[in-house]
Computed example of a mutant assay.
Amino acid sequence: MKLTIQLFAGIAERLNTSQLFFEFDGDTPTASILKEQLSAAYPEAASQIRSSFLAVNQMYAPADTILRAEDELALIPPVSGGDGSSSPEYNKQDSPQTQEHRTEDGLFLITDAALSVEATTKLVITANHGATLTFVGTTREMTGDQRTIFLEYEAYVPMALSQMSAIGAEISERWPGVQTAISHRIGKVDVEEISVIIAVSSPHRSDCYDASRYAIEKLKQTVPIWKKEVWEDGSEWKGHQLGPWNPMN
């Protein structure tokens, strides 16, 4: 069975491609067996492949998921960063046009243009909500003794938007009435520039605080967006920093 697999972040750099055309060896293709075969076929990226999750049709797939040739497959390294590897040989071509992708309800945005705190916050302000809280994430210059020149973000856009929308739905279920909007930057983000905005509103302020914290932590766990730190003397995709990564928990 011939399978097409999308690659991102450090795995794409290590293998110098954003797409693999792979001949599956066997009669019952599952997510776990495919990862085993990919690890054997590409030993230079085996550790990254093993720590990744397979997405099937833009959903994280359990290990026993049966794969079909027509499925949209993507190998997802730990999100909120990549897999900790980099290669100077892999370079993406910058798009001459602004990329902007938004969910149908307008609440969730991925773009390579500068983000607007006012525009994102305006999406959640309503007449019956007395509290609005906006979280803004920016590029930090110094991490210990390491000086960051800029960050570079990459996203599996359709799945990222779907996961962001799911976060909004989870928040609405946990805190009824809370409205959520998330905007995330991709591409190059310089020091002090905004990479992410999360705006929440509710009738009362306590729910705003709780929902905002939940949104950023969930985004860093499940949304397929990766961050590369670029320094004066090198670069590195930053992986999940909270131990073993499982976006399905």
Rank of each mutant, 00 (worst) to 15 (best):
M1Q: 15
M1L: 13
K2L: 15
T4M: 13
T4K: 15
I5R: 09
Q6M: 07
L7A: 05
L7V: 09
F8Y: 13
A9P: 04
G10V: 04
I11R: 00
N16H: 14
N16E: 12
T17N: 05
Q19T: 15
F21Q: 15
F21D: 15
F22S: 04
E23I: 08
F24W: 04
F24E: 04
G26K: 00
G26Q: 00
D27E: 08
T30N: 03
T30K: 09
S39F: 09
E44Y: 00
A46E: 08
S47K: 15
L54D: 07
A55T: 03
Q58Y: 12
A61F: 04
A61M: 09
P62D: 07
D64V: 06
L67N: 07
R68V: 12
R68T: 14
R68G: 14
A69R: 11
E72A: 13
L75A: 01
I76V: 10
I76T: 05
D83R: 01
D83V: 10
S87A: 10
P88Y: 09
Q93D: 11
T98V: 13
T98M: 09
Q99C: 09
R102D: 02
R102N: 03
G106P: 00
T111F: 03
T111H: 06
L115V: 02
S116Q: 08
V117S: 05
K122C: 05
L123T: 04
I125N: 12
A127F: 11
H129L: 03
A131E: 14
A131Y: 09
T132Q: 13
T132G: 08
L133W: 08
F135E: 02
G137W: 09
T138W: 07
E141F: 07
M142W: 10
G144E: 05
D145M: 12
Q146Y: 06
T148C: 13
I149C: 11
E152Y: 14
A155E: 07
A155Y: 10
M159L: 04
S162R: 11
S165W: 15
A166H: 12
S172I: 11
P176W: 15
V178C: 14
Q179T: 12
A181W: 02
A181D: 02
S183M: 03
I186E: 00
G187M: 01
G187F: 02
K188P: 06
K188W: 03
V191Y: 01
V191H: 04
E193M: 05
I197D: 00
I197H: 00
A199I: 05
A199C: 06
S202G: 09
S202Q: 05
P203E: 14
P203Y: 08
H204G: 11
C208N: 03
Y209G: 14
Y209M: 12
A211R: 02
R213T: 11
R213E: 15
R213I: 11
A215W: 02
I216N: 01
I216E: 04
K218E: 08
L219N: 00
Q221H: 13
V223R: 01
V223F: 09
I225R: 01
W226I: 01
K228T: 04
K228Q: 10
V230Q: 06
G234F: 01
W237C: 08
K238T: 06
G239R: 13
G239V: 08
Q241M: 15
Q241C: 14
P247E: 11
P247M: 14
